[in-house]
């Protein structure tokens, strides 16, 4: 990477790539979290005919590689009338992938709430919705925080995989620069350092949040 003018020329593309990585990561995390919560609640409180199919879908998503899912969606989609550009396909795929994992994390959290707390809510005459909103969701949040932060980090790292279906995110932009300038290993090294920094920052923020919320923990 001795030729700095080439780097300067490529910089806007790389910066755009970084923003796209961050935007897709945050959007997919938010979508995945909301959808995952919906799945967890539906499976916890819904009838069996809702629980069973969701169990199967979540199992299939968690049991197959993200890369294969993305290929199926992006290359297989057009054959069933689902023609998506790389970026929406990547976002949708990443959100679904996240939703499956988040649903399991959140379901575990719901199941780990001591039944006595729910009973206490019923005893003082809270409605079912109030119990979910005032007791179950807050308690669940504390229980699932570490696993959720972990999942956010996993999703951040999975965004790199989207470069394979030509989403112009960070990995795509930097490796593109690397191959245009015969600087493959330098490009990979820069990527490694940027992702390492981002994952460490996310993990650090998660631990900070955990400490802040620690005071709400019961006993």
């Amino acid at each position: 990477m001795s030729d700095f003018s080439a780097l300067r020329e490529a910089m806007p593309e790389i910066v755009d790539g970084l923003w796209l990585t961050l935007a897709m990561w945050l959007a997919a995390s938010a979508l995945g979290l909301v959808l995952g919560l919906a799945i967890a609640l539906a499976r916890r409180f819904g009838p069996v005919w809702v629980d069973r199919p969701l169990w199967a879908v979540v199992g299939v998503i968690r049991g197959t590689p993200f890369l294969v899912q993305i290929f199926l969606l992006y290359y297989g989609g057009p054959f069933i009338g689902l023609e998506l550009d790389p970026t929406p396909a990547g976002l949708g795929g990443l959100a679904l992938y996240g939703a499956a994992y988040f649903s399991e994390i959140l379901r575990g959290g719901l199941l780990a709430i001591p039944p006595g707390h729910v009973e206490a809510g019923m005893c003082i005459g809270l409605s079912r919705l109030q119990i979910v909103r005032r007791i179950m969701l807050p308690e669940m949040t504390l229980l699932v925080l570490p696993a959720s932060v972990n999942m956010f980090v996993v999703l951040l790292k999975e965004t790199a995989v989207l470069s394979i279906i030509t989403v112009p995110e960070l990995t795509m932009a930097v490796t593109g620069f690397g191959s245009a300038n015969f600087a493959f290993s330098q490009a990979a090294l820069v990527l490694a350092i940027v992702y390492w920094t981002l994952t460490e920052l996310t993990g650090g923020l998660g631990r900070l949040l955990e400490r802040r919320l620690d005071r709400f923990k019961l006993a």
């Binding site: 790292k157 965004t159 470069s163 493959f184 990979a188 090294l189 490694a192 992702y195 994952t199 460490e200």
Partner: peptide
């Protein structure tokens, strides 16, 4: 632990694939 857990496997593979020949 921090490095190899913090870098996407895809990037790690690219790094190793290109650095070893050098």
């Amino acid at each position: 632990v921090s490095f190899f857990r913090g870098v996407p496997l895809l990037v790690l593979l690219l790094l190793i694939y290109h650095v070893l020949p050098q």
